[in-house]
Simulated scan of single mutants.
Amino acid sequence: MHELSIALGIVDIAEKETKKAKKHKVDLIELEIGTLAGIEFDSLDFVWPSAVKNTVLENAVKKVNIIQGEAKCGDCNTIFKLNNIYDSCPNCNSFLKGIIKGKELLVKSLEVS
């Protein structure tokens, strides 16, 4: 379950940024996570309380913006939604594609106090 290490990494980022801002806690953390990032959202929600206990994120509201996967076909240039990294182009059935979005995993913003 790598979601725990991801959650702990998010805690580390939040603690460093809170310290830089000379604040003591985070009121809101906003994350952007792509559907192709390899994150199980239910698993992240499960480990979150343990990961943030006794940290600046303990009482923070967590907002997750889910970014839908999207790709551009390398053969016909069709832009299409991508639910799985191995999906083919719906227009020409080619597997040659470039991922446009959906692999994001980032802390978008923190509200500190």
Rank of each mutant, 00 (worst) to 15 (best):
V64T: 15
C76Q: 09
G69F: 12
N54R: 14
N77I: 01
G74E: 07
D45C: 10
F80R: 08
I66N: 00
C76T: 05
N65E: 14
I79P: 03
N83S: 12
K72A: 05
V47I: 14
V61L: 15
I67C: 07
Y86S: 07
D45T: 07
K53T: 06
F46N: 08
L82R: 08
G74F: 06
N59R: 10
E40C: 13
A37V: 00
A60E: 09
I67G: 07
I39Y: 02
V47C: 13
A71I: 04
F80C: 08
F80I: 09
K53Y: 13
G74Y: 08
D42H: 11
W48F: 04
V52K: 09
I39N: 01
G74I: 03
E58S: 11
N65V: 07
N54L: 10
N65Q: 09
S88F: 10
Y86A: 10
N59F: 07
V47H: 11
G38N: 09
I79F: 07
S43V: 07
F80L: 12
N54S: 12
I66Q: 09
A71L: 10
W48M: 03
A37E: 01
S50V: 11
V64L: 10
N84S: 14
V52Q: 06
N83K: 14
Y86M: 07
W48D: 01
A51I: 01
G69W: 12
I85M: 14
V61E: 15
L82I: 04
A71P: 00
D42E: 15
I85G: 04
F80K: 11
C73T: 02
N54I: 02
N84A: 11
C76D: 02
E40D: 15
E58L: 06
I66E: 12
K62S: 03
S88T: 13
A51E: 06
I85S: 08
T55A: 12
T55G: 09
C76G: 06
A71C: 04
K62N: 02
N77T: 05
A51G: 03
K81R: 13
N77Q: 14
T55N: 09
D87K: 05
E70K: 15
I85V: 13
V61R: 15
L82A: 04
T78A: 15
V47T: 05
C76F: 03
E58H: 10
P49N: 02
C76P: 03
K63L: 14
F80P: 01
N84E: 11
V61Y: 10
N59C: 00
Q68M: 13
C76N: 12
L57K: 04
F41C: 09
V47P: 00
L44I: 08
D45H: 14
G38D: 12
L82K: 06
V56N: 06
V52D: 06
G69C: 09
D75E: 15
F41P: 08
Q68T: 11
F41E: 11
K62R: 15
I85N: 04
S50F: 15
E70T: 10
N65M: 06
P49Y: 00
K62C: 06
L82C: 02
C73W: 04
G69N: 12
K53H: 13
A71W: 11
L82G: 01
V64R: 12
N54M: 09
E40R: 07
I67R: 06
D75V: 13
